[in-house]
Design a protein around this nucleic acid. Structure first.
Lengths: 266, 266
DNA sequence: AATTATTCACTACTATGGTAGTTATTATAC
DNA sequence: GTATAATAACTACCATAGTAGTGAATAATT
C-alpha cells in the first residue's frame, strides 16, 4: 500500500477514503466514474465514499459540463484543517484532565518494564525536544532511534550522543565509548539514558531478562541523569589524552574509532 | 456524556477506552475490577479495553501487592504523544502530496456553494491566522464565528471587523455599518468577506437561494478583498464626520451605534 | 460466604471492503 | 441504423471485524 494512504488511515480514514482522496489530488477534476477507475475503488462504492469525504470537507463537488465532478481540498489546506481540529480536541482533553489531577506527573517516577514502551517513550521525547538532548545508547537502541535523532539534529536541537561500541552513525556530537566486545559479552546488559531539555529523563537497562527503566520529570532525577552523562563525556575526553595507551590496548580499532569522535565539547 | 470522553472519541478512541482512561486519571492506581466499577464499563469488557489502552501507550500495568494494577499515562504526556504521532502522519501526507501537485493551490479559485462549508472554511482561517484578520460580516455569520474571532483577538491577532447591522459583540476594532433594516430586508442578501494574514481570502454572499462564495490565495484576489474592506472602513470613518447628518437620518439609533465604534484605525 | 478477579459465550449494531446488478446516455464500429 | 462498447450514476446484498451490551462460569482472596 502507498505510504500516504497508510498515513491517512492512521489519521482515521478508511482505505477507500484515503485512496479516493489521493487519486483526486493526483488528477482533478474527475467524475465519480473516472475516480473509481483511477483509484481502484469499485464504482459501486465510490458514491458512498465521496459523500463521506464531502462531509469531512476533503473534497468539493463542482458542476462539470453536464456531469458532476469532484476536486480535492488542496493537501495544505487539508493538513491545516485536520491539525486545527485535532488541536481543539487535544486542548479540551488536556485542560479538563490536568486541572483535575495536578501534581502526579512532575515528581512521579514511572517504571517501564516493556521494551517497546521504552522505545516509544524515547521517540516521543526526542521528537518533542525543544532545546537539547543527551543520550547514552548502545547500537541496538540506536537502530530504533537513529531516525528520530537525525531529525532532532536537523531541527537544530543540541544533541550529544554517547555511543557504546562501534557505529557508523554520523552525528555532530557523537562520543564513541570504546567498549571491548568482551566486556559487553560478559555483562550482556545495555544501558540506556536519555535526557531531554534538562526537564525529563529516562534511565534504564536492557538485558536478556527484559527491560527495566524509569522515566521521570523529577528534578533530582533529571539532574542526576544529566550529570551522569556529562561525567561520562568528560571521562572520555580525558581518556583521549591517553590515546597512546589506548592505542596499545585497542590497536588499529582505536584509530578507527577516533575518526568519528566529536570535535567539539557538549 | 462527559465532554472529555466525547473529545477522546473524536480523537479515535472507543467510548469504553475513553471512559476507562478518564476514570483512571481521576483515581489511580486501580485494579481492573475497581476500574470497571468506577467507570461503568462492564467487568466483562474491562480486560479487553485495558489491553487496547496498553497497546496504545495510554496506561501502564504496575505490580500491586498481589494483584495487577493500572495507572494512566499523565494527560500531558498523552497529549504530547498523540500530537507528535499525528504530526508525523500529517507531515508524511503533506510532503507526499504537495510535491506531486504544485501550483494548483496558490492561484486557484475555490467555489463554495454550501453554507456549512463556508463557515467551516472561515473558522479554519480564523483559527490558523498568525497576524491579521479583516472581516466583513452580518450578524447571522457573526453568531457562527464569534467564538473563533474572540479567540483570535485573545491570541493577539490584529483583527478588524466590519459588522453590518447592530450587534452586541464586543471586540477591539469593530466597525458597525449602520444599515437600515429596510435595505437589508429589501435585498435579503448578506455579504461575507474574510481576509487572513493578507494571504488568503473568502468572499461571498448568502441569500434565500443559497450560498455562493469564492476562496483563494490568489494574490490579486486577496489584495482586492483587502482593499474592499479597507475602503469600507475608510468610508465609514468619513461618514462619522457627518455624524449630525447621520443623526438626523438614524436618530437615537445612530447614537447607540456610535458607542461601539472602534476608537482606532486599522 | 462474600467479595474480588478473570474469562467465556452470545447478541446486536455499525462500518468497511467486496461482488453483483440496474438504468441511462453517449460514442464507435460494422 | 443497429449493435456494442464505454461512460455515468446508483441500489442491493453479503462477509467480516470492531464496538457495545448482557449473562454467566470460574478462580482466587478475604
Amino acid at each position: 500500500m502507498q505510504t500516504a494512504v497508510l498515513k491517512l488511515k492512521h489519521l482515521g480514514f478508511s482505505e477507500y477514503e484515503a485512496k479516493a482522496y489521493m487519486a483526486l489530488v493526483h488528477e482533478n477534476p474527475l467524475t465519480a466514474y473516472e475516480l473509481s477507475k483511477n483509484s481502484g475503488i469499485p464504482s459501486s462504492k465510490i458514491y458512498e465514499v465521496l459523500r463521506k469525504l464531502e462531509l469531512r470537507h476533503m473534497i468539493q463537488l463542482i458542476r462539470g459540463e453536464r456531469t458532476k465532478m469532484f476536486v480535492p481540498i488542496p493537501p495544505d489546506e487539508f493538513v491545516r484543517n485536520f491539525r486545527s481540529s485535532i488541536e481543539d480536541n487535544l486542548h479540551a482533553v488536556r485542560t479538563e484532565l490536568t486541572t483535575v489531577k495536578p501534581g502526579l506527573d512532575s515528581g512521579y517516577m514511572w517504571h517501564i518494564k516493556n521494551y517497546e514502551t521504552l522505545i516509544h517513550r524515547a521517540k516521543r521525547m526526542i521528537n518533542t525536544a525543544r532545546e537539547s538532548l543527551l543520550v547514552l545508547i548502545w547500537k541496538e537502541e540506536m537502530k530504533e532511534l537513529a531516525e528520530a535523532l537525525t531529525g532532532a539534529v536537523q531541527r537544530g536541537i543540541r544533541t550529544a550522543v554517547i555511543h557504546y561500541g562501534f557505529t557508523d552513525f554520523k552525528i555532530s556530537r557523537i562520543y564513541i565509548h570504546p567498549v571491548e566486545d568482551t566486556v559487553y559479552e560478559a555483562k550482556k546488559v545495555r544501558g540506556f539514558t536519555l535526557v531531554s531539555d534538562l526537564k525529563e529523563a529516562v534511565n534504564g537497562r536492557i538485558d536478556s531478562k527484559g527491560t527495566d527503566a524509569v522515566w521521570s520529570m523529577n528534578e533530582g532525577f533529571v539532574t542526576m541523569a544529566e550529570d551522569y552523562l556529562r561525567h561520562d563525556i568528560y571521562l572520555m575526553k580525558t581518556l583521549q589524552r591517553f590515546a597512546p595507551v589506548m592505542r596499545k590496548k585497542f590497536g588499529d580499532r582505536y584509530e578507527k574509532l577516533r575518526d568519528v569522535y566529536a570535535d567539539e565539547a557538549y
